[in-house]
Design a protein around this nucleic acid. Structure first.
Lengths: 235, 235
DNA sequence: TGATGTCTGATTGTCAGACAATCTGACATA
DNA sequence: TATGTCAGATTGTCTGACAATCAGACATCA
């Protein structure tokens, strides 16, 4: 937003950026990665001293990172018993899907009022997803495919133009990624969704938001039963 | 929900409850209260050692509580410079209002499908608010009036029946309470909203959700400008 | 004068070590 | 079978400490 207008404090270094990450942030990020990658099985207890030893940091640092992940819902803390990787139950999956449906239709409904960059972001997300899906058959990893899939849906929420809704959606998707990581080890089921995504964008471009909402409802309902089915398989 | 059916593990002590609060939780709760009560002016730095001394707890405990409040948006952390009470700016207020509008219409739209207890909760919340507003003129404190006002809107979100949407709404309302605490010291502007709330419930009972959504949009838009006006006054 | 280098005190970020409270599980006991 | 007891493990919390960073005052130099 036009901050380059000021003359005196106009910073000629607006393009510079410095990563200001704390140790806690890095630990939390590493734990997230391990969880999404499926390296930590659901229910695995995360012992503070063991983690501190493995990561070469102190216990308070680990504790702080664990607290952040607990707040995100990825880990579950039982008082005096430690934290463990959250076990996704069907009820919570259903809740996440309901909640994300609310956020995504909010974005879809504001398609016509959304600024052009937000709309373009949706198209770009679709293109990236399609690219990953196209090179499938072993090329693009299942991980990136999943990531781009969620990125597309996140871009829909972005249409609403609200950072807070965006942040809420991100934590919801984090829970979905956790569930998917627990369920999948090598399976793939994305290609059938590529067509649905393209249809969604086509409907959006046509300006018929209500038709898009209806299609989105179908799409998400299908996604939910797919996840629930896979969750029910092993148990 | 019918858990008293089981015979073997039927616990005859379902009515018992024990508060399992940690020190960190109590510190965080005390800080929240102080913030909502307006005891801490916006921008006030919260020094860890000073807090630890005042509350008779250790610095790590304070740190953990501060981290939680930062995650909720009530406090702002600047790396290596400590945390301070978040200063609400108009842009973030606007964002909160947009986000809460999304959540509340989601609840309103599911009025007809909502279970009866949820609908009753809305009526009860309205009654409690009306009671507090009625005894106004100095009787019911401005604090409780504000609390019941937000409780009513929260009950609208509850109609959607999603714990996660509910939790998101709660953090949004926490930010609103922060903004209101910074702005108001003794002012009152609630009575004019009582009528609007009653109208909302009447529209809901009639089953015309779309009319309710329209009225809600007006109501929330009015609330936003009211907050923004009051925010702009002192500065 | 204005920009830069340096010092000092304060505060945070992180660490190490410790202790009490609590949980788990096994075992002993009535 | 139900209860009491114990040892080990883990968390929750505390104490004390240190390096890194920051803000401000001051000195230095072009």
């Amino acid at each position: 937003m036009g901050r380059t207008m000021n003359a005196s404090p106009a910073d000629p270094f607006a393009s510079l950026h410095l990563e200001h990450s704390s140790t806690v942030d890095r630990v939390a990020e590493e734990l997230r990665r391990a969880i999404f990658e499926g390296e930590l099985e659901s229910g695995t207890p995360l012992r503070e001293v063991a983690l501190a030893g493995s990561l070469q940091v102190s216990r308070p640092t680990v504790r702080e990172a664990l607290g952040a992940l607990v707040a995100e819902g990825l880990l579950t803390r039982e008082p005096n018993r430690g934290v463990s990787v959250t076990t996704p139950d069907p009820e919570s999956i259903h809740d996440v899907c309901r909640a994300r449906f609310v956020l995504e239709i909010a974005g879809v409904r504001s398609w016509n009022d959304a600024p052009e960059p937000s709309r373009q972001a949706v198209r770009d997300a679709l293109a990236e997803f399609a690219a990953a899906a196209g090179t499938s058959g072993g090329g693009a990893s299942y991980q990136t495919l999943n990531e781009r899939h969620l990125a597309f849906h996140l871009s829909l929420v972005g249409l609403a133009g609200s950072p807070r809704l965006q942040a809420m959606a991100e934590t919801l998707y984090a829970e979905l990624r956790l569930a998917l990581a627990q369920v999948d080890r090598a399976r793939q089921n994305a290609p059938d969704q590529a067509g649905s995504h393209t249809l969604l964008v086509r409907l959006l471009e046509s300006g018929d938001v209500e038709a898009t909402v209806a299609e989105l409802e179908r799409h998400l309902a299908g996604a939910e039963v797919a996840i629930l089915e896979r969750l029910a398989l092993p148990g």
